[in-house]
């Protein structure tokens, strides 16, 4: 009897949540059911621990929203210092304004951005900074050489295609952002999407972007 329960317990722990699990649980001796439930709970907690948000750079939604730092769209320290001076916005004030928009920023961050390269600042935050210092995102950005990996090369090939240019234009229009920012977001999204599985071909990557832009346009038309 005990062996039978042990076998049931083994099967129970292998069963996914659902009717099968419930059926096995019902067949377990009442005096061992509490133990079985604890073991199930422990497993479910491990499942939850294993299922959290993907790393930022692998999250296509984050890429679409421009919160993935982009080496090709980096904040330029001198340009930011100049823009702050021109607009007479001090670091503390800029930090407060960005915080009011939902960004977790200290004045020390702004000081750092004005004095050192800031590869951690994502395009969406650069856009917010630009709005607060009455500038354009592109004016605050330093161009840098992208790292050449096989994946980046695929993305660059796609980026050179007329279809991608068209998608970037449409994305920029819908999101009311510059073409450069739209391009950054769409390239990041392409790269993030690739991390989800095998290396897709160019057609798949373009189709994925196309469906995103189409979804945004459809929402807009509603």
């Amino acid at each position: 009897m005990n062996e039978e329960t042990d076998r049931l317990l083994e099967r129970l722990l292998e069963a996914p949540p659902g009717p099968q699990r419930e059926q096995i649980l019902a067949r377990i001796d009442a005096n061992r059911r509490e133990e079985a439930l604890k073991l199930l709970d422990a497993g479910d907690l491990v499942w939850e621990a294993a299922h959290s948000a993907p790393p930022l750079e692998k999250d296509p939604v984050a890429a679409m929203l421009g919160v993935v730092p982009d080496p090709n769209f980096q904040l330029d320290a001198k340009a930011l210092a100049r823009a702050c001076k021109t607009s007479r916005v001090k670091p503390t004030a800029l930090a407060s304004r960005l915080n009011a928009r939902g960004w977790k920023i200290d004045a020390s961050d702004v000081f750092r951005w004005q004095t050192r390269p800031a590869p951690d600042v994502p395009p969406a935050l650069i856009k917010a900074i630009a709005e607060e210092v009455h500038s354009e995102p592109e004016r605050l950005v330093a161009r840098s050489q992208p790292q050449r990996t096989a994946l980046v090369e695929v993305a660059e090939n796609i980026a050179a295609s007329p279809r991608f240019r068209d998608l970037v234009q449409r994305f920029a229009t819908i999101r009311q952002i510059s073409v450069e920012m739209a391009e950054s977001a769409m390239k990041s999204r392409m790269l993030a999407t690739v991390h989800r599985g095998d290396m897709p071909d160019q057609e798949q990557m373009l189709a994925s972007l196309e469906s995103l832009v189409h979804a945004l346009e459809t929402e807009q038309d509603r």
Binding site: G66, V67, R88, A93, A100, R101, W103, L125
Partner: peptide, 21 residues
């Protein structure tokens, strides 16, 4: 211009990107 008043802050809407993050 160097300080953000509460009024300023209250008129600022949250960035969707920041909220998502």
């Amino acid at each position: 211009q160097d300080v953000v008043s509460e009024a300023d802050v209250s008129t600022v809407s949250l960035d969707v990107a920041a909220v998502f993050l």
